[in-house]
């Protein structure tokens, strides 16, 4: 197979106070794949994704994005290749207008002039938010802000899109719209989520992480159908939801 879009090898991490969060985490994501990262609160999901673009770095193990190892000297390029969408769009959208915010990323990588304008327009178009380009982010609804947050990352043309709880707190319609947009993007994706139907709808493959370890890796429908595994890792399907009755989004 081709070079993995993302390769995590033997990654371990402890906080300065000694609390171990990740234990030899090992997995890879191939180009074009959409992978869900499932796990209970405190399993180490957010810590893991902050490693993927070098905001946290760890003494043991390695992270490689599209063949480039995440080391101190590569950190800038790694951050371009890994598009991180944070859970709270208010953390992510910090510039006075949507347009400036979407331009922030590519501008940091030296894109300017007409190309910068094109990037901003394309990214906003991809999430259907072009008409709010000149509004301040705090005038948008949560669903709109989350879509803009995705655009801020798309504008950097990353190798892999990493989303932290993309559907949390969205009303059903916004949640559905976002799913549509993500579905239509032609990009490798790693999605941290508690929203199991969302994972099933969007991701053909899932990883389960608990206590800092990857405990399962397989097709989403299989994982969601494994009651033992689900219960052991504090994952619970919505009442009445049976994954075996549903045609998986993609297989």
């Amino acid at each position: 197979m081709s070079v993995p879009a993302l390769e995590v090898r033997d990654l371990s991490f402890s906080y300065p106070d000694g609390t171990a969060v990740l234990h030899s985490v090992d997995f890879h994501v191939h180009p074009g794949e959409r992978v869900a990262l499932l796990g209970p609160n405190g399993a180490g999901k957010t810590t893991l994704i902050l490693h993927l673009n070098g905001i946290f770095s760890s003494s043991s193990g390695s992270v490689t994005v599209a063949g480039l190892p995440a080391t101190e000297e590569n950190i800038h390029e790694i951050r371009r290749r890994t598009g991180l969408v944070f859970q709270d769009p208010d953390d992510q959208l910090f510039m006075p207008t949507v347009r400036q915010d979407v331009a922030f990323g590519p501008a940091n990588f030296g894109v300017q002039g007409a190309e910068l304008d094109d990037r901003v327009r394309d990214a906003l178009e991809a999430v259907g938010m072009l008409e709010v380009a000149d509004r301040p982010p705090h005038h948008l609804s949560l669903g709109q802000r989350r879509r803009v947050a995705v655009a801020t990352v798309l504008a950097m043309q990353p190798e892999i899109l990493v989303l932290d709880e993309p559907s949390s707190n969205l009303d059903p319609a916004s949640r559905h719209e976002l799913a549509h947009i993500l579905e239509a993007l032609d990009i490798t994706m790693l999605m941290v989520t508690h929203d199991l139907p969302y994972a099933l709808e969007l991701c053909e493959r899932s990883l389960v992480i608990n206590n800092g370890r990857i405990v399962a890796d397989g097709p989403t429908s299989t994982i969601l159908g494994d009651r033992e595994l689900m219960r052991a890792n504090r994952l619970e399907l919505p009442y009445g939801f049976d994954p075996s009755f549903i045609r998986p989004g993609r297989t």
Partner: peptide
Amino acid sequence: ERGERVYQAMAARGYQGQMPVL
């Protein structure tokens, strides 16, 4: 704490201490 998270979000998009000219 939000200030710290915003910084992380900026760093994640290639911020290196200089606000880009927009």
